Simulated scan of single mutants.
Amino acid sequence: MFSSSDYAPEGFAGLPGMHARGGRMFKAQYRCYSVTMFTDRKEIEEGGKIIMPPSALDQLTQLNTQYPMLFKLTNPGTANTTSHCGVLEFIADEGKVFIPYWMMQNLCLAEGDFLNVESAILPLGNYAQVQPQSKEFLDIYNPKAVLEASLRKLSCLSKDDMLKIAYNQKVYQFRVLKLKPADAVSIIECDLSVDFAPYVGHEEDERQQQAERQKRVHPLEQAAEQLRISEEKRIEKAVREAVEQSGGFKVFHGAGNVLDAGGRGAKKGRKRGKAAAGSGGASSAPNGASTDGAAENMDSAEPRTRGVPNYNYVKGTLTFARVFPKKQDLDKEEDASFNAFGGSGHCLRKRRR
């Protein structure tokens, strides 16, 4: 939000009747030239006001034109090309007007072309949406404040106008997309809300950024992939060396180990071993290896008790298993050590014979 102010042009401040509305409208045709051909004042080129001849001031005074004076500019060669502006001074040569060069570009005018100028009454604006023509303007610090400060130099805005703002030795362009409450509004002494539309070319930039994100791999993911590949190569090399040292690859070669040595599997294994020994001695495995060694290992293995898993285990902690005697074992120990009325008695007084 910002509030802009305008001042009366030099030479007519305080004239009577400037705030009254006249029944007729001012309209004239002049040859237009850029402001740089009249003066070197940079603020005039960056603003949105024109310099008119003194005769225009006389006509406007007689017509009781409403103040602040606003004008509609039309290119007679292309009637659809219009814009709006304010007036700065009435000191131009007769038959000529001097306007900022960026306004001449909007109106498609060259030096010395004819320009129609007519008075206009515009409502106060309350909303404006502009579109930056490049992404560079959005990269500066607080671009909205820079835009609002530049708009204070203007008197009015027209839809589809191309504004030029000079900041930090660079010139940025903006196109006016939306205006409220009309397509042409006055921004003198008003609260105007300014909004930015996506800059020109943002869709192409978004597609390029998305393609780059897809191609770009996170450093951690890349390192993990390299570690996985190196680990696979190391394992493959170790297996190859082991096969070469053993003299070749043998199917199902090696000794077996029983995990449940004291459970049902061990008992069944011992029974199979005894049955094989009773039926005809040692039996052979598919690769020719004897199973007597395995049977002897199972027979000689000490029976183990199956443990109970800790369902309350917490990751990252150590749990020390403690085996407590069962209640039945405690009862047996008490029975073995305690015998009711099993002691010997003593008498304090001997019996008489």
Score class of each variant (00 low, 15 high):
residue 302 E to Y: 13
residue 261 A to N: 06
residue 279 S to A: 13
residue 259 L to T: 12
residue 311 Y to T: 09
residue 204 E to S: 14
residue 70 L to Q: 04
residue 53 P to F: 03
residue 272 R to Y: 06
residue 105 Q to V: 09
residue 296 E to R: 09
residue 105 Q to R: 13
residue 214 Q to W: 04
residue 230 S to Y: 02
residue 175 R to I: 03
residue 56 A to Q: 01
residue 148 E to A: 10
residue 208 Q to R: 07
residue 143 P to C: 03
residue 89 E to P: 05
residue 268 K to R: 13
residue 144 K to M: 07
residue 307 G to N: 07
residue 237 K to A: 03
residue 92 A to C: 11
residue 228 R to A: 10
residue 205 D to C: 04
residue 287 N to M: 11
residue 283 S to A: 07
residue 162 M to Q: 03
residue 161 D to G: 04
residue 20 A to S: 13
residue 314 V to N: 04
residue 47 G to P: 00
residue 86 G to F: 02
residue 30 Y to N: 00
residue 313 Y to H: 13
residue 323 V to N: 10
residue 241 E to V: 09
residue 120 A to G: 03
residue 256 G to M: 15
residue 247 G to H: 07
residue 297 N to E: 15
residue 305 T to M: 05
residue 91 I to V: 15
residue 321 A to M: 09
residue 3 S to E: 11
residue 315 K to W: 05
residue 285 A to H: 09
residue 350 K to W: 09
residue 36 T to R: 05
residue 214 Q to H: 08
residue 143 P to Q: 04
residue 187 I to Y: 00
residue 288 G to P: 01
residue 238 A to F: 04
residue 18 M to Y: 09
residue 299 D to H: 14
residue 105 Q to T: 06
residue 251 V to E: 11
residue 49 K to G: 00
residue 9 P to N: 04
residue 194 V to K: 02
residue 59 Q to P: 04
